[in-house]
Each structure stands twice: as structure tokens, then as C-alpha cells.
Write a protein that binds this DNA or RNA. Structure first.
Length: 420
RNA sequence: GUGGGUGUAGCUCAGUUGGCAGAGCAUCGGGUUGUGGCCCCGGUUGUCGUGGGUUCAAGUCCCACCACUCACCCCA
């Protein structure tokens, strides 16, 4: 038997309904806030990701599905969506005219990590990006949208964590201060941090190894290094959140694993998921459009983890499964062909109707109708064919009557319309 | 990449100190000819994760591998 590959999975009926509900809600909320859908490919030139996410990140160093195509070009299954959206924004010169765009997209991402609860090698995100504004109000709106969405979905127990990572003016001094801080502490740092300290010193801050935490306990704080502009930006971000009634926790250790982030970053965390506690995350990336060959253009955005949302909602959401309202039980070949026509006519009118296509007895068909929670059963056999009437049975009341063929469909439609 | 746990029917799981592969649910049929739910009777469903090894005999003991799972790491 051929099985799916590790870290990949099938979303089967019964589960897919939940995903649809989540996606529908997210689309509606994003649309209310003025976002329009952009559809982008899942395969891109490898360089797009190495240049945007950063050469020294975990994603680029060890998690990407990268391969040579038949011509010899290096291509990568996207590990995230922001880079592609920015690429598209630049390629189609969406910044010409009005550079301000609110875009969203949804689809699968690919990272070759070790799978665990809430983490898969193919996972799904909804991304929302706002390009063309450097306003901290936009950052606040994004966090607000997440709060609204999670509340609509019934996801409780979430906390917004925020931070500011500064900008090219002030971050270098902070990085240097971090490096200076760990000088002489080599014995305390784990192997990863020892390697990271020069290449990506910000990552020292969120290492969970106890000795590293100890080493970083008195590490310098980005807040103290923010330049006046970044300081004001962050303050306005926080003020806007307060005005909107969004509770938040300022978390100076919220660093995030992609290099393109500047200034505001945020993450929505939950403790309903075990170790994988982030259900949405994002931040500002003011330098990315320029870095990918576009004009100087500020931007900000977030990604929501659909797999994790679905996992959380599994516990406390009842799914509506589509019961057929009508089941047609037919005895004999000729009756079955009549039933088939009726089923199709009812389906055409938007009424869920089912029948049995095999040559089974009436009892078996009644059992099936019951299991499918059908409201009505139409019975047709030899007697009904010769009388040109069908038996219409109300299942919950256990009562039935004979209806002429000519009136059957119309009557069933009326009954169902009146009942609901 | 590193650890821990788990792999037996479609699902949930029993299976003793090695001795004929099991239950519940699901599914199919029947309980007087054409009427569901409850009940009763019966049938179907297995590479015991895979491959080696020990043994007269392995689901059970040993080794390797694979998958799932949880955690580290990282993040959605």
C-alpha cells in the first residue's frame, strides 16, 4: 500500500467541514476590513526565499524543500507566503498609482521539520499583508483583526504578544550590545547559540536552553536601544491597541525566526495546543520590498496557522453534517430508474436527496434512510408504478400517505419548505 | 537532527510465565413475502508495522528498519 509521506496528511470529510467554516469566517472578516485575495504559486525560485527570509535562519538552513528542476534551476516549495506576495507586488508594479494594498491569500506551506502536534511538513496558512504604509495604526489593526477572527471562531484563551525589533538605524547598536554581552560566556552558551551569536545575535534572546537563559538574563533590552522614531512608532502601536480594547503583553524576547522583520512584531499564543503555542504571528517588514528589487516601501502582515486552529476547534465545535432530507427507497429496476430521476430533480432544486443504487431489500433501504437521518422517505415499487402513486413517509412521525407521481416533487419541496 | 512513548480487523482496544487470532462498535444478511430507530440471531473483515534472529512453537523474547505520536529545536 502506498501511504502519504511523512508530515503530510489528508483532511477527510468530517474534518474538511471544519476547515471550510474557518476559511469562510476568515474570508468574511478580511473582506470586512478591506482585504482582497491574491493567488500566488506554491513553487518559487529558491533565491526568493534565501534573500527574504535570510541565509542564516533555520528555515533556509535546514527546512526548505528545494530541488533542481529538469532545466537545472533551483526551485523551492514555499515555506511561507509573504515573500511571494511581495514578489508579486513588485513584479506587477502594484505600487504604481496607489501603492497602498491590502492583500490576503491562503494555501499550503512546506517546511521539512520533525512533525509533532500542531506541526506538519505541509501546513496551511491564511496570510494578510498591508503594503504601502508605515503607520503603526495598521499594525494595530492587524492584531485587532486577529482578535476579532478568533473571537468569531470561538477560540478563547489567546494572548497577544508584541515587541519592537527596531530598524536599520537602531538595530545594529543593539546587535553589537548583545554580542558584547556574551563575550566570555562561551561556556554557558549552547552549540546553536555559540554559532548564532555572530550571525544572528537576536536569536540568542529566545533560546530556551537553561544555561543560555541564565546567560541572557541580564542581556540588554531592545527597548533601551530603539531610536526616537522607532520608540514613537512602538508607543503609537500600543496606544492604538489599547484604544481598540486589545489586551497585549509586551515581550522583549519575541524575536521571530525570519530576518525581514522590523519594528512591530506580534504573535497570538494559546495554551490549548501543547508546545506549539503560536496560532498566528506577524510583523512589519519595511525593508523587504526594496530588498527584493522594488521601491522603498513599508509593509506589514500576519499569518494564521489553520492546522492549529482546526486542532483547537476540534474539541469544542459541533459540526453540521449534511443530512439528506429525502431518501428514496426503490424496489426493482424500473422503480430505481424512477427514483433516480426524482433524486436528480430534488438535488437540482437544492434539496439533499439520496437513494440506494444496489438491488437491496426495502428493509435495508429503510435502515440506511434512518442512519442518514432523512426527514422523508419516498417508497416506490411495483404497486406504486402501476398506480402511479408513491408512498411519502415522514420518518419522525412514522406516518405515510400515497402521492400521485405528478405531484410528488412539488409536494416534497413544499413540505420541506414549510417545515424549515 | 536528538530523545521518550506507541504500532493486533474499517474504528477503539484485549491477548497471561511463548502453545489454534479475540471483544465492542462499524458493516452485510435474517427475525414470514414491501417499512427505519430498540432488541435477538448469523455472516464478512487480519502480511499481529516491515525484515531478520532465538525456539519444536513467536502477536508475545532479541536485533534492525519504518511509521505514528509527544517533547527538544523552530514556528503557523
Amino acid at each position: 500500500m502506498i501511504q502519504l509521506i511523512r508530515g503530510f496528511r489528508d483532511i477527510l470529510p468530517g474534518e474538511s467541514e471544519r476547515w471550510q467554516a474557518i476559511e469562510d469566517t476568515a474570508r468574511a472578516v478580511l473582506s470586512d476590513f478591506g482585504f482582497r485575495e491574491i493567488r500566488i504559486p506554491i513553487l518559487e525560485a529558491t533565491e526568493l526565499f534565501t534573500r527574504s527570509i535570510g541565509e542564516n535562519t533555520d528555515i533556509v538552513e535546514k527546512e526548505m524543500y528545494t530541488f533542481e528542476d529538469r532545466k537545472g534551476d533551483f526551485v523551492t516549495l514555499r515555506p511561507e507566503a509573504t515573500a511571494s506576495i511581495v514578489r508579486s507586488y513588485i513584479q506587477h508594479k502594484l505600487y504604481a498609482g496607489d501603492p497602498f494594498h491590502k492583500l490576503f491569500t491562503t494555501g499550503p506551506m512546506f517546511r521539512r521539520e520533525r512533525p509533532q502536534k500542531g506541526r506538519y511538513r505541509q501546513f496551511y496558512q491564511i496570510n494578510a499583508e498591508v503594503l504601502g504604509s508605515d503607520s503603526p495604526l495598521i499594525d494595530a489593526q492587524l492584531v485587532f483583526i486577529l482578535k476579532i477572527l478568533f473571537s468569531k471562531l470561538g477560540v478563547s484563551d489567546t494572548t497577544a504578544h508584541i515587541n519592537s525589533l527596531g530598524c536599520p538605524v537602531c538595530r545594529p547598536a543593539f546587535k553589537k550590545a548583545l554580542i558584547d554581552h556574551v563575550v566570555g560566556m562561551d561556556t554557558k552558551l549552547c552549540v546553536d547559540c555559540a554559532r548564532r551569536k555572530t550571525k544572528n545575535p537576536l536569536r540568542l534572546l529566545d533560546c530556551k536552553v537553561p544555561s543560555c537563559r541564565e546567560a541572557m538574563a541580564k542581556a540588554p533590552d531592545m527597548m533601551a536601544f530603539l531610536c526616537p522614531d522607532c520608540r514613537e512608532h512602538f508607543q503609537r502601536f500600543k496606544t492604538a491597541l489599547s484604544v481598540l480594547g486589545v489586551a497585549y503583553v509586551t515581550d522583549p524576547r519575541l524575536v521571530r525566526g525570519l530576518d525581514y522583520y522590523t519594528r512591530s512584531t506580534f504573535e497570538i499564543q494559546t495554551n490549548a495546543l501543547g508546545a506549539q503555542n503560536a496560532i498566528a504571528g506577524g510583523g512589519r517588514y519595511d525593508g523587504l520590498v526594496k530588498a527584493l528589487g522594488g521601491p522603498e516601501m513599508p509593509a506589514t502582515g500576519f499569518a494564521i496557522g489553520l492546522d492549529r486552529l482546526a486542532e483547537i476547534l476540534k474539541n469544542d465545535t459541533e459540526l453540521q453534517t449534511g443530512h439528506p432530507k429525502v431518501f428514496i427507497a426503490a424496489i426493482g429496476r424500473e422503480s430505481r430508474e424512477k427514483a433516480f430521476e426524482w433524486v436528480c430533480r430534488l438535488n437540482e432544486k437544492g434539496i439533499p436527496a439520496e437513494m440506494d443504487f444496489g438491488d437491496r431489500g426495502l428493509k435495508a433501504q429503510m435502515k440506511r434512510a434512518d442512519k442518514l437521518a432523512s426527514r422523508y422517505v419516498i417508497i416506490v415499487g411495483e404497486k406504486e408504478l402501476s398506480a402511479k402513486t408513491a408512498v411519502l413517509r415522514n420518518m419522525s412521525e412514522a406516518q405515510q400517505e400515497a402521492i400521485p407521481f405528478s405531484m410528488l416533487i412539488k409536494m416534497v419541496i413544499e413540505r420541506i419548505a414549510n417545515a424549515s
